[in-house]
Amino acid sequence: MTIEFFAGRYPYILIAVLLGIGLYGMTMKRNLLKKVIGMTIFQTAIYLFFIQGANKMGATIPVYAEELGTEPTAYMNPLPQVIVLTAIVVGVAITGVALSLILLTYKRYGSLDEEVIIRRMRESA
């Protein structure tokens, strides 16, 4: 465990921590909205993972510049950025649907607390 190791890999560690936080929110929180927030954090961690992988030391954004030509090391990797763009849109879409579902759940059971909802479900059944 040397300094170089951390210097080269600290993003991974941070991302793993963020991912853990997101997962914690998704699984441990009882409030549905907080679960969705956890889900968003979880997804964000994944976006960050892709983004940091696109990074190249000393490279610029992947927009062609006259003075750099088409030297591959001069531009960051465009593919992960595309993937993240897609993934973000997917994430937004899921969040939107999740919010609609939560809205309807709240309307029906008057609560966002998972255990309360389950109790009310049993009562009404």
Binding site: L32, K35, I94, V97, A98, L101, I102, L104, T105, R108, Y109, I117, M121
Partner: peptide, 8 residues
């Protein structure tokens, strides 16, 4: 909806 949130 509630069941589906969990699935989601």
């Amino acid at each position: 909806p509630f069941a589906t949130v969990r699935y989601l």
